[in-house]
């Protein structure tokens, strides 16, 4: 991918942002010497970027996250280091925003500087198998709520439609009509469609811009 200095991932909660964020950060690190992944999720209590801490450390990717992530401190705390994202202009960042408009509120704190520098992408991660974003219309609703909350506009879409471990190649193919309709309604480009690595081979000749994901988490 052709990265701007700041890449923001946002969308409905449970759409797969955190996993994609870790994958993109690893790709970005191949291109740039100083890379950070900033977890500013104030919504999700479990399943955080911090779960991938060891991997990120090994690959020399800086993890910016609340010191209370994965602890019992149940407050919507943001990491003070998050200002590195806007203030350190040598640093390339992937910003993992919490789900929905409630999660996007936290991003609003950084929006003025992000908008002023104007060297960012904000990508909408979508999964048409999530109950509240099953159609393009309901997804656009979520998208507008996020934009209003964080005061930034989306610049592209990542189609991460999946059914977890039960995802069949047809499920991904079936989602392409939804992704196309979403692009039509929003005027945004579909940057890529993400699939688990084992689905990459059967689909690579059928779906353009297919992006194989390494799944970071397991239960």
């Amino acid at each position: 991918m052709n990265f701007k200095r700041i890449t923001i991932l946002s969308g409905h909660y449970g759409s797969g942002k955190t996993n994609i964020a870790v994958n993109l950060a690893r790709e970005l690190r191949q291109q740039k010497p100083r890379v950070a992944i900033a977890d500013i999720d104030i919504v999700n209590p479990y399943f955080r970027t911090k779960d991938s801490e060891a991997l990120l450390q090994k690959e020399d990717i800086r993890l910016i996250c609340s010191p209370y992530a994965n602890s019992n401190v149940d407050i919507p705390a943001l990491p003070q280091e998050m200002y590195s994202v806007t203030d350190d202009r040598e640093l390339y960042s992937i910003v993992d925003v919490g789900g929905d408009e409630r999660g996007a509120l936290a991003l609003g704190r950084l929006s003025p500087k992000i908008a002023e520098e104007a060297n960012y992408d904000m990508l909408l991660v979508v999964n048409c198998y999530r109950p509240l974003t099953r159609t393009a219309a309901t997804t656009v609703e979520v998208m507008r709520e996020i934009e209003n909350a964080c005061r930034l506009k989306f610049s592209g879409i990542i189609n991460n439609s999946n059914l977890g471990r039960e995802t069949a190649p047809e499920d991904v193919e079936h989602s392409m009509a939804y992704a196309g309709e979403l692009c039509r309604q929003t005027g945004l480009p579909l940057l890529f469609t993400t699939v688990a690595r084992e689905l990459y081979e059967p689909l690579k000749n059928k779906i353009p811009h297919l992006y194989p994901l390494e799944l970071q988490k397991k239960l």
Partner: peptide, 16 residues
């Protein structure tokens, strides 16, 4: 093929 949706347990309780 997908008559299924991907849900959090909490959402599944609410929708059910």
């Amino acid at each position: 093929m997908a008559d299924k949706v991907l849900m959090k347990g909490n959402e599944a309780i609410a929708e059910a």
